[in-house]
Design a protein around this nucleic acid. Structure first.
Lengths: 169, 169
DNA sequence: ATAAACTTTCAAAAAAAATTGAAAGTTCAA
DNA sequence: TTGAACTTTCAATTTTTTTTGAAAGTTTAT
């Protein structure tokens, strides 16, 4: 396979993976591009390589910066902003976990907390108990997941590697 | 809060969580309904409760059955099919992991394997090496994630609890 | 203070994904 | 074998999400 073809393929696949996990396909493609690109790229470079509009490029690069997956940089003597991607796949994973934890897990935990206080009357006492019990189960599980993810996203790769290597055998 | 309101809220929140993770919102809502509903439900019940069409209900219930999150059952003396949901949140998690692993992680691993064979010529030798190295990193990481998930989705809840409890402290 | 060179925003348009419901298919009791 | 009672399919429609690009905003060198 040629390098150009391989890069293209990687970008497409990463885009489709992202898209399947609720991440904007273009954002995932831009991320893929930065994962395998060694040089600094400007917003215009990204627009051209991926054939997307200015607004689209800008908005998604912005989000990637927010997530900590892309860094802003300046070339001396150039006015324009340039960007480079975080290459370390372990750091990438940690930052994606953090972003999605705050975006999705936290709101879910909030709602689950609220749902624990349901008023019962004499007619539906048992039903309310069953509901409350199940919500409690789900909440405990979500909290365990939350702590595990927090631990993982704050650890050294080394710790992770050792732990999981032991773990999977 | 009233029970009805709480159930409604849970269904909405679960739907939105699913939707954010690339799972059809309605499918997630049906799943939520089954998570908190004690009785058997027919396709018509689901249609009515969630105000959705026959085709929609059918298709998503089918997928939930494929994933192992909902079971088909028969009431004696009734022609109609009834369904009940898997209530155990640990089993639910394991089955979701399995389904998504085969749907998304496996194809990604395949593509990454293909991408390891890129032809270099004298002009782009270094670039090809950098690319290959990065793909290799990503692939190793994806394989570690894959094994970890396989291990997790095949384990007893007890093992998982013990391991992660130790883990997060 | 100006204006050139850039970045960001956002309403409208396009694309993608989900939903509908009528029609086709299936199953089963008689 | 029939037909009633159900389930499944899929083309057309609707809804949701994404993208565009012109206009507004910002920054910086002079």
């Amino acid at each position: 396979m040629q390098l150009t073809e391989a890069k293209e393929k990687f970008i497409q696949q990463w885009g489709s993976l992202g898209s399947n996990w609720g991440i904007n396909r273009t954002m995932a493609q831009i991320h893929a591009l930065f994962l395998i690109n060694e040089e600094l790229l400007s917003a215009e470079d990204v627009m051209e390589i991926l054939q997307i509009s200015r607004g689209n490029a800008n908005m998604n690069i912005r989000t990637l910066i927010d997530w900590g997956l892309v860094y802003k940089e300046h070339k001396t003597g150039e006015r324009k902003e340039f960007f480079r991607g975080e290459k370390d796949i372990w750091k990438v994973t940690q930052r994606v976990i953090k972003a999605r934890q705050r975006q999705e897990l936290d709101p879910m935990l909030n709602v689950l907390s609220q749902l624990q206080n349901v008023e019962a009357d004499k007619k539906n006492k048992e039903e309310v108990e069953a509901f409350t019990k199940q919500i409690k189960n789900i909440k405990s599980f979500a909290e365990l997941a939350d702590s595990s993810l927090t631990k993982i996203s704050g650890s050294e790769e080394n710790w992770f590697l050792k732990t999981f290597m032991r773990f999977i055998r």
